[in-house]
Design a protein around this nucleic acid. Structure first.
Length: 582
RNA sequence: UGGGCCGUAGCCAAGUGGUUAAGGCACCGGGUUUUGAUCCCGGCAUGCGUAGGUUCGAAUCCUACCGGCCCAGCCA
């Protein structure tokens, strides 16, 4: 039930054939299983529905659902941590469910909400008050902060700390009945105001929030805080291993404290791991939300966003994301993963499954003088060079073509293998052509077309098809090509760690070229069948995914998922002086 | 100056006292190629934050120091 499309790799295989758990969490779980502490494992993925899922969540999803899928009788539940109606919504909840499914995981019938447990949680809070382990505090927010002390100074007890149990009970009941305004009172656990761990200095466990909740409506006006709600929700679900990120490490003593005070059905073990950081992007919901709210991107699913929905629109497949999550590992080390690794995973995945087609993004007209006037022909071209089973399609060839301007240089450097005056190239799947003349705009001097000749013997599969030339370029027949819109996406930020410098806004570091729109590119005619979600490789350029049609022109839109690796571009960069363009 | 956690290559990451410190990404060579793609082959830490110590033997144990991250929401 919790199975992703492909077998998750639970264990790594050592050279001697030995298998050992893939990471420290799986090792701990394996131990709990082998000692008989547990017979199966129960995990949960607990998002707060206050934003869209990003690839950091994907790491957690792969871990939680993955671990469950690796052991018989085990499962992972999807539980919404919806204890703060001020920030949460049903829209986010739906988006999260869609994304988890898309990633390839299934919670089956185990969809839960912390709000499902509000009554139970409330009763436990009353138990705590009765046993003098919690009290209603009537200090203001500012006062509570002042009494809490600092990192180096202990806190002081609130004057209400020793309020009689009956009084707290009465006040808490009236809080729940809506007799007080927001902020008038809170319920606090009675632990230790002098603890070096600030989380233990009488943490607030209930606050008044007169808001409509997207699940419970107006049934409640007091809502539990995370620390109280989370451990108890885990306990109700008999979670065996509660996996969360490093910033909750300091909360673990509190997690365990609540479970020790109350009569609970289970005492889950909280284990923390490092959250995912990626270069050239930001990962906090707060920052992503800011980008959306201020219009720096078009939405949570903008293809430049590190969100699951953004990556989906960008053309990433869930297989690639899962592979990535597996490759980065699970540790407690604060790591920053190279965006290049994600891109490698995406390329590897797409290389195997994607059909290759021809498209010209920046057209330069090529006129083939010796090709029969008004004539055209069809060339059969395979969809994948290594996978004949993927079939082929017909390509129209004629005397008027478009090639990419990057594939021509009037005065090329030594290692340029493409078209130049007097030089030959092969047209992919077609003929070898020679450039005889460069046509320029007399006013601007810009190259506007190339007069070429073709060698009729060199057609793919023909007599001279084995003849070697240095380069092969892509092309389309001018009369047959379809106009489309292409969006070239690049990294969202222009520096590896946009969040590093706290003195300047990360938004000043946005990459101004993160999206370039080519409003009229030319694609081979077979692409008239392309539908949103379809993925292709544009040969020599990259992988592209069809988005919704452009509303203004109705044209098909192709989003660039990722470029192909380009060792020529790297060479070009290394040569200090960039060669002149044609 | 309190507490918690973390330091193995440019980036990840195995390794849990005993052969020459796995693997991946990146990078650098070379081969194949009608995608400068893919694929294949080779290279890439006398070194494990630093300094001492224990031991026949230390990335693994001990001590001290250095560096980084997190915590003072009625957020999660």
């Amino acid at each position: 039930m919790n199975q992703p499309g492909s077998e998750p790799r639970a264990e790594s295989t050592a050279p001697d054939g030995d298998t050992r758990p893939a990471d420290f969490i799986r090792a701990l779980i394996a131990q709990d299983l082998s000692t008989g502490k547990h017979s199966h494992v129960v995990t949960r993925f607990p998002p707060e529905p206050n934003g869209y899922l990003h690839i950091g969540h994907a790491k957690s999803i792969c871990l939680n659902f993955g671990v469950a899928a690796e052991h018989p009788g085990s499962y992972c539940t999807l539980r919404f941590d919806d204890t703060n109606p001020a920030k949460e919504s049903a829209e986010y909840m739906e988006a999260i469910k869609r994304d988890v499914h898309w990633l390839g995981f299934d919670w089956g019938s185990r969809l839960r909400h912390a709000s499902d447990y509000f009554q139970h949680l409330h009763d436990w809070a009353v138990d705590l008050i009765r046993s003098d382990k919690a009290y209603v505090d009537s200090l203001s927010g500012d006062e509570i902060r002042a009494y809490r002390g600092t990192l180096t100074e202990p806190g002081r007890p609130s004057p209400y700390r020793d309020r009689p149990v009956e009084e707290s009970l009465d006040l808490f009941t009236r809080m729940g009945r809506g007799e007080f305004d927001d902020g008038a009172h809170v319920l606090r656990a009675k632990i230790d105001m002098a603890s070096p761990n600030l989380n233990m200095r009488d943490p607030i466990i209930y606050r008044i929030r007169k808001l409509t909740h997207h699940m419970t409506g107006d049934a409640w006006c007091i809502y539990p805080m995370y620390d109280f709600s989370h451990c108890l929700s885990d306990a109700i679900e008999c979670v065996t291993h509660s996996l969360c990120t490093l910033e909750f490490e300091d909360h673990r003593p509190l997690y365990d404290w609540f479970l020790a005070q109350l009569d609970v059905p289970a005492h889950p073990r909280q284990i923390e791991f490092a959250r995912l950081n990626l270069t050239y992007t930001v990962m906090s919901k707060r920052r992503l939300n800011e980008l959306v709210a201020e219009g720096h991107v078009t939405g949570w699913d903008d293809p430049r966003m590190p969100t699951v929905s953004g990556m989906r629109r960008r053309g990433y497949r869930p297989e690639a994301i899962r592979d990535f999550c597996e490759r980065i590992g699970i540790t407690k080390k604060d790591a920053v993963i190279d965006m290049g690794l994600l891109e490698t995973c995406v390329r590897e995945d797409l290389d195997a499954v994607t059909r290759r087609v021809l498209a010209v993004l920046n057209p330069l007209k090529v006129i083939i003088d010796n090709y029969p006037e008004g004539h055209s022909e069809e060339i059969d071209a395979p969809y994948h060079p290594q996978k004949p089973e993927m079939g082929s399609r017909k390509l129209a060839f004629s005397g008027q073509l478009f090639i990419d301007r990057d594939d021509f240089m009037e005065d090329p450097p030594r290692k340029f293998f493409r078209l130049a005056p007097g030089r030959e190239v092969r047209l992919r799947y077609g003929y070898i052509i020679r450039c005889n003349e460069v046509l320029k705009d007399p006013a601007s001097g810009d190259v506007i077309a190339l007069r070429c000749s073709y060698d009729p013997e060199t057609r793919s599969g023909g007599a001279q098809s084995g003849r070697k030339v240095k380069g092969t370029i892509h092309w389309v027949s001018a009369a047959h090509a379809q106009p489309v819109q292409v969006r070239l996406y690049d990294r969202l930020f222009s520096v590896p760690d946009p969040g590093a410098d706290k003195s300047q806004s990360f938004k000043d570091l946005l990459n101004p070229d993160s999206m370039r729109v080519v409003s009229q590119a030319w694609v081979e005619s077979s692409l008239s069948k392309a539908r949103p979600g379809d993925r292709y490789q544009f040969e020599r350029q990259g992988y592209f995914c069809v988005d919704q049609p452009d509303p203004e022109t109705g044209r098909t839109v192709f989003n660039r998922t990722v470029t192909l690796r380009d060792s020529w571009a790297r060479l070009e960069k290394q040569g200090s002086q960039s060669p002149r363009r044609g």
